[in-house]
Design a protein around this nucleic acid. Structure first.
Lengths: 173, 173
DNA sequence: TGAAATATGTCAACATCGCTGACTTAACTT
DNA sequence: AAGTTAAGTCAGCGATGTTGACATATTTCA
């Protein structure tokens, strides 16, 4: 009942081979839906949506991020970003400061209130991971990390890795 | 550099403990984005979106599904479903037949064309999994399945498992 | 049989969050 | 001084979700 029919084909074309992995496809769909569902419920209380969450998350994680850098991470247009960013600025979850070297740039920072919300959201999602990992064998965390990183487009893995594990801790120590 | 600070707290409250698992949170986000991105590009060629994909996928997986069952799987409103379902019906990717026992019900089936598209989409996403699993150790597939299933709301895991691994193959055999 | 419940479809209005295109302003670079 | 760059803004649109109200056919039940 567990054995898959992986490499059983012989003379078929290269593109459509092997049975679709319906289980992984569907589990990934449902797992992600519940994963974001946690945050959705908390965000609702603030009148925010997922777009606000993503912006707040990355600004909080990388204080001083510029608009251009944020756009590159989120892969959306500046018009889309501006709508939600403006709300986060107006409601004081994020603040912007003109750059020193280049005063055209706006460096974004989460305010105390913003950091609190970002942390609450991160804790919510971390608790789901914690529940999963508690009931899992020892290497599970590293296995999950490797699996998820590998799921990313190969050409993007380095970029994402550099973002997830920032290359340098602040030089002040 | 790899060691986390998991259970280091002492007198803190029960809710907000432990460091957020930013790596897992972010990797899950980026992995899912690329996972659905595969399908998005193919769907575009047909003028379809993700909503069409989900409907076609589950109808193809469970021929004879009724509207109510589909709504229960997708957790959307019938108005949302109807919009995309109508397009799939009109363009002959899905067809509906009145129920025999209960003629109010509409049983949904993917047409030949619908099955082809559904399979193409599933193959696309399976190839991503295949790439990941080829480069991974032996237990990786089962590990991923266990991880993703555990990520689902515990109260929903049985329902999803019953959906992903249908309880009975057709009794005709 | 007649009333109530059920399965589905539909109309209207709206929210969120993505997009394109065009244009502005300010600041930096050459 | 001219050109480039970073950011903001206006207008319009598309996909996909939501509520609420109502219509129709069919089945179930008292």
């Amino acid at each position: 009942m567990e054995v898959a029919l992986q490499g059983r084909s012989k003379l078929r074309g290269k593109t459509h081979d092997a049975e679709p992995m319906y289980d992984l496809i569907e589990l990934f769909f449902f797992a992600y839906r519940d994963f974001v569902g946690d945050a959705d419920r908390l965000l609702e209380a603030y009148g925010f949506g997922r777009a606000h969450h993503r912006v707040l998350h990355f600004v909080n994680r990388q204080p001083g991020l510029t608009i251009a850098e944020l756009l590159d991470i989120l892969k959306i247009t500046k018009q889309s970003l501006n709508r939600v960013l403006k709300e986060l600025l107006d409601q004081n979850f994020v603040e912007a400061h003109a750059g020193v070297a280049d005063r055209r740039q706006r460096h974004l920072y989460a305010t105390a209130e913003g950091r609190k919300l970002a942390l609450d959201l991160a804790h919510l999602q971390s608790r789901r991971f914690a529940r999963v990992l508690e009931a899992a064998p020892d290497g599970a965390r590293q296995d999950a990390i490797r699996f998820l990183l590998a799921m990313i487009d190969p050409g993007d893995q380095d970029r994402v890795a550099g973002l997830v594990w920032p290359p340098s801790p602040p030089p002040v120590s």
